[in-house]
Design a protein around this nucleic acid. Sequence first.
DNA 1: ATGCAGTCCTGTAAGC
DNA 2: TGCTTACAGGACTGCA
Length: 277
Amino acid sequence: MPELPEVETVVRDLRPWIVGQRIRAVQVGPKQLRHPWQSAWTNRLLGAKITALTRRGKWIIAELDRPERLVVHLGMTGQLVVVPASEPIADHTHVIVQWDASPHELRFRDVRRFGSMTLHANDAELQAFLGDRLGPEPFELTDADLARGMKSSERVLKALLLDQTIVAGVGNIYADESLFAAKLHPQRRGQSLSDAEVSRLNAAIRGVMARAVAQRGSTIRNYVGGSGLKGGFQEEFAVYGRAGEPCRVCATPIQRVRLAGRATHFCPQCQAPWSDG
DNA sequence: ATGCAGTCCTGTAAGC
DNA sequence: TGCTTACAGGACTGCA
């Protein structure tokens, strides 16, 4: 599932292929993504040059040489890839962007259509949109930021980590992995955390994210980077998807429960539920 | 205000 | 073998 490391990998892969390219054509399929494509968007994109490709949380942002911003969210099964235009079009391909001077094209494929591709009018409007939804990036998150998000809440840690307004980019996999790395039980309440535990959690999130980005993210089912390459971090999972398997630290079987509506994996020994202050 | 459950969507896999 | 059912979960809505 594309979370921060996967989205970052897609952005890095795509950047050399599409930054500097001028849009010649946009083809949109009949099936709607999360938000319907407005036909006016196509006209506003034609002739525009991509000037930068960036990421904020799990959102991908294409800057243009005009005010509009093209924004993509991969949802659960979204894939954004650059391929030779001659390549057969895979099932569930919903948008194709073609360039003036390239034999390659950009394709957005999304089997379950939880993803979205939208055009925002300008950067200020986009920043307001993202600002309403996203807290700090993990690599910019201070202990004070995280403490503010955690210690004022009665919600369980798993739910708090999935809340994009507290820290942007963490999804189900990296929430579980971060809590293991921080030795915190996913069912602990935010307000039960000590300052030391908040600090540990912050370091854990950052460490897990850095290692996952270095491995080009995780491929569980169908995630691929912008060049079609799979990720490798799934080989390093400590808990996610390892229910019943021995903890890599203490050999205790990894437990799986349902928390905040999500499958949640943890080591009952390493992540004991009591506070250690 | 807060937190939770339900919703969307379809491919995969388990169960009978 | 073929059908039904559960499950995967990011972002969002509606309800208590």
